[in-house]
Amino acid sequence: MTIPTMVTGTATSADGTSIVFDRLGAGPVVVLVHGAVTDRSHPTLAEVARVLSRWFTVVNYDRRGRGGSGDTRPYAVQREIEDLAAVITATGDSAMVFGGSSGAALALEAAARLPAITCLALWEPPYHVDPTAPPLPDDFAARLTALIEAGRPGDAVEMFMVRAAEVPADAVAAMRTHSTWPHLEAIARTLAYEAEIMSPANRLPTIAASLTQPTLVLNGGDSPTWMRAAGSAVAHTIPAACHRLLPDQSHDVAPHALAPELLEFFARQRHS
């Protein structure tokens, strides 16, 4: 089997920010939108891109503030939507879009504003619709930004990990001694961006009800109850959505479980 050649390109967003992407394969365009602390080098979506590239042109990009992409300030969610629009324009006239975790929330917001997005697949958008979800203050993004501006990026990472991602404090303490910790501190500012996308307090946005695109919402069968409830709520709010649980998967989904679901969904949309 011929291995598709990866091509690295650059899109220029509306505010002039350079957004770097990898393009792999041929056919209808699928754009992958990462969640917190990941970029296009992350092995999960890199492997998903490889699998889907046999049938699609898969675009795996660095969101602003990560990897090779720029980071024009001040931050605004609308600027990230413009980044995605620029990537779609640079790689085709339209795109099917996948978003994971807070990247799913960004993809949802973009789909409500960008007609070029023809369908949407979402992995565990972390909206808080269940009382067991971790409580977050409305000013969570501002608190993260304050720590970063005070020269305390490590504390910002810890706050995000413990408060939003439900990582035990002792596990975060161990992470601080790991070789990957400096990388997390380097992109700590983008955690405030994730909080902006999810604000206020990770509430499910009313704009979801306005989406007209076919949408697949996926959850892991082993994920927390509140995450599964969020997926169900999103699927019930978006008119043309369906919801599926992947057995034996947690929030950190395995590529071998995720890729077939996306392949089936995108292939169905391709021929509809």
Rank of each mutant, 00 (worst) to 15 (best):
L184C: 05
A104T: 01
S272F: 00
I207E: 15
G99A: 07
Y193F: 11
A105N: 10
V87T: 11
I148D: 15
A254N: 09
M1V: 13
G92C: 09
L147I: 00
P260I: 11
L32V: 10
L184D: 01
G9W: 00
A26P: 01
L32I: 07
D139K: 05
A110N: 13
A11D: 14
A188V: 08
L245W: 00
L204E: 12
H128G: 13
I88T: 10
D139T: 09
M161T: 05
H42S: 11
T8M: 10
A104D: 08
G92W: 07
T180Q: 10
T10H: 01
S210R: 13
T215R: 04
Y75F: 15
S102W: 05
E47Y: 06
I19E: 08
L191I: 11
N60P: 12
E82C: 01
G103P: 10
G154S: 04
T57I: 06
L191T: 14
A259W: 03
D83Y: 03
L144H: 07
M175N: 14
P224T: 11
F21D: 00
A209E: 15
A46R: 14
V167N: 01
S272H: 15
L108I: 13
I207L: 13
A142N: 14
T225K: 09
T72E: 03
A195L: 00
D138C: 07
P255H: 04
M96I: 04
M161E: 15
T57H: 01
R54C: 10
P115Y: 02
A165R: 08
V217I: 01
A188Q: 08
P126K: 10
A165E: 15
A230N: 00
V97N: 01
Q249S: 06
V157Q: 00
W226N: 08
W55R: 14
R79L: 13
A111W: 10
V37C: 11
H243S: 14
A156L: 06
V37A: 15
P131I: 02
F21M: 03
M198D: 14
I238P: 11
A164R: 12
P255R: 03
V87P: 04
V33S: 09
A46H: 13
G103E: 05
V7S: 03
A141G: 10
R66W: 03
Q269G: 00
P205Y: 12
A90E: 12
D138M: 09
I3Q: 13
A241T: 10
I187T: 15
E158C: 03
L114M: 05
M1Y: 13
A121G: 12
T91Y: 02
I117S: 03
T89G: 13
A86L: 02
W55D: 14
A105W: 10
L108N: 03
D62T: 11
G70P: 14
A254V: 12
H251C: 10
E149W: 03
R163T: 14
L218D: 01
Y61W: 14
T89Q: 14
E194D: 15
A173E: 13
H42A: 14
V48E: 00
